[in-house]
């Protein structure tokens, strides 16, 4: 039972969703559209599991005084602080207005977004170190990688651009297009095959056993 029901669910819902794609039925389109709503609602329940895991992992760290346990206080402080700001009670004049709360919104937009953008901008540094290491003519393949990168990179220079730009544009438009199409076709096939294996219950590692 424990094993069969999930597999049956997989089978039923998988084929159902597949079939609905081809059936022009009011209900079919509705299910298609609702599926996304459903996923996001279930996602919130899953998030509860996630947050619970985050809390227990951090409490455990503090309890056993594991490495860097002091920082777990900061995580928990941030977590609960933000949850409190995100509460809603006390009517219209209260400072707790759910996701509309002043502090809730601004804490995210004005404090966390800077961290976010900074994390993202670390890429500028990493791209340099990756390029320094990877773009060496070690082998035939590495040389080709290098050539592709060089041609496209010099297209940005104001003076040589006139001559290199057409070549770079051509590479970005033509071989790039060919390669991307080959990758996409392969990915499409991979997804169809994997999806089929999921629906048939062949691929079920994600469900574990028992």
């Amino acid at each position: 039972m424990k094993r069969q029901i999930p597999l049956a669910l997989v089978f039923i819902f998988g084929w159902l969703m597949l079939a609905l794609y081809f059936i022009p039925l009011e209900g079919a389109q509705k299910v298609n559209e609702n599926m996304l709503d459903w996923t996001s609602i279930i996602g919130i329940f899953a998030l509860a599991l996630g947050i619970w895991s985050l809390i227990t992992v951090n409490l455990d760290r503090i309890k056993h005084k594991k490495r860097d346990w002091q920082y777990s206080f900061i995580t928990l402080f941030g977590l609960f602080g933000m949850i409190i700001f995100g509460l809603k009670f006390g009517g219209e004049n209260s400072m707790f207005q759910g996701q509309e709360s002043y502090m809730f919104r601004h804490f995210f937009n004005d404090i966390l977004i800077p961290i976010y953008s900074t994390m993202f901008s670390l890429l500028a540094f990493f791209i340099a170190s990756a390029a320094y290491r990877a773009f060496r003519a070690r082998s035939a393949l590495a040389s080709i990688l290098l050539i592709g990168a060089i041609i496209v990179m010099i297209r940005f220079f104001p003076f040589v651009a006139e001559y290199t730009r057409p070549v770079a544009d051509w590479i970005l438009n033509v071989p790039n297009l060919a390669a991307k199409r080959a990758i996409w076709m392969g990915v499409g096939l991979g997804i169809v095959a994997t999806g089929l294996k999921v629906i048939l219950g062949i691929e079920r590692a994600y469900m574990g056993r028992d």
């Binding site: 996001s40 998030l47 985050l54 977590l79 759910g98």
Partner: peptide
């Protein structure tokens, strides 16, 4: 650590209010 805690709570609250 601050980022992890605050952002996890942020997404949970936003998800809770808008989806549920």
């Amino acid at each position: 650590h601050l980022y992890v805690g605050v952002s996890a709570a942020y997404w949970m609250c936003v998800g809770f209010w808008s989806n549920i």
